[in-house]
Design a protein around this nucleic acid. Structure first.
Length: 348
DNA sequence: GAGGGTCAAGTCCGT
DNA sequence: ACGGACTTGACCCTC
């Protein structure tokens, strides 16, 4: 019997996403700590037992790396206990090639045991778990096949979380499966129709995040009574061409409401330092000034390796009053170290 | 073991 | 109409 997910503490958290980078750069540790993949193409070229064998090899590695990642996070203070898990933990799960393989008793037993173990570890250490399916998951698509795939993808993530003991009700332990609004043409009405296609269990986990192109945070407000909103401060800065939302902003209050008592999740990243030569790390990047130097939106969108800007880190520290943060930086856990230093200095 | 082509999927923008 | 960006390398085949 799986113990229920513990209530989420009110303590702020921030953490990294999907991949761990060993501080000493040890490639063997990097490989051990991170998931692998197998392509559909490779699986489809194998037959029968070979196909199962290949999948089992990758799944076993992925479950082991997930366990190690949770161990790493659990070794830090409670304010660092949030982890975005890579969506590739069970490769090909929602694809016709992979689906029957996961029904093989051998595979099923491996997956249930591994995820059960991981979920237990996450719950015991109080690690908040999230997922972020990629750009192919478009819940408002007008293309039936795309919508079908998107629903299947969200149900896949729900299956994973169920085996981790993190489903049932409204975002248990703060768990979330976060996606973007999708294409503009179908609008937020299309998103609501897509939500209706999901199981009740999945609907209790999905969240929606503002992007730089199609749905700004204001554009997502019509969804706030149906699904929690995830504010990405950097996406908003790009889409609004320079606005830094403050914690006392009325839009933040609406976002908090959309979570219905669960502590919200937000995202932070920062433009690449090397594209901003000579920029002071003590000053918030000024979009208009940077655009005037010839930098394009696509340049400013790109994520930095590290949380190099102390002013942004102080802004995030202020936002920790209401949200937990997933840090989207190429430097992963190393960027979390950066934010941690500034947040502690600012009195976290 | 190294090198290089390949990888399930959507949507947007710039040309 | 089409290629590239997003992401973001890792994988896998060939030599």
């Amino acid at each position: 019997m799986i113990p229920p997910a513990a209530a989420l503490s009110a303590e702020p958290r921030f953490g990294w996403c999907c991949q761990y980078i060993p501080p000493d750069g040890d490639p063997a540790v990097a490989k051990q700590m991170n998931p692998g993949t197998v392509t559909i193409s490779t699986l489809s070229k194998l037959e029968g037992a070979r196909r199962v064998e290949k999948l089992v090899e990758v799944v076993r590695r992925n479950l082991q790396s997930l366990h190690l990642q949770l161990g790493e996070v659990a070794g830090h203070p409670p304010y660092r206990r949030i982890l975005r898990v890579g969506s590739g933990v069970l490769p090909a799960y929602s694809h016709p090639i992979g689906r029957p393989l996961y029904e093989e008793p051998e595979v099923r037993a491996l997956v249930e045991a591994g995820l059960g173990h991981a979920g237990k570890k996450a719950r015991e250490a109080g690690i908040r778990i999230g997922f972020h399916p990629d750009q192919f998951c478009v819940l408002n698509s007008a293309t039936p096949a795309t919508l079908d795939n998107s629903v299947a993808e969200l149900e896949y993530h729900t299956d994973v979380l169920r085996m981790m003991g993190l489903t049932g009700g409204w975002h248990p332990a703060g768990t979330h499966i976060n996606i973007h609004g999708g294409g503009r043409a179908a609008g937020t009405e299309g998103f609501l129709r897509g939500l209706e296609r999901l199981s009740e269990e999945a609907r209790g986990l999905v969240t929606v995040e503002n992007d730089e192109m199609s749905y700004g945070i204001e554009d997502l407000m019509p969804l706030a009574d149906h699904v929690p909103l995830v504010l990405d401060l950097h996406h908003h800065w790009v889409k609004s061409q320079g606005e830094y939302i403050q914690p006392d902003d009325p839009r933040v209050a609406r976002i908090v409401e959309s979570w219905r008592g669960v502590r919200p999740v937000a995202h932070i990243s920062v433009s690449r330092e090397e594209l901003l030569p000579g920029h002071s790390p003590e000053v918030l990047p000024d979009y208009a000034a940077l655009a005037a130097t010839g930098l394009k939106a696509r340049d400013l969108r790109a994520h930095s390796d590290r949380m190099w800007n102390h002013a942004i880190n102080r802004l995030v520290t202020a936002h920790l009053s209401w949200a937990d943060f997933e840090i989207e930086a190429k430097g992963k856990n190393l960027a979390v170290d950066d934010l941690e230093r500034d947040a502690l200095a600012a009195g976290l």
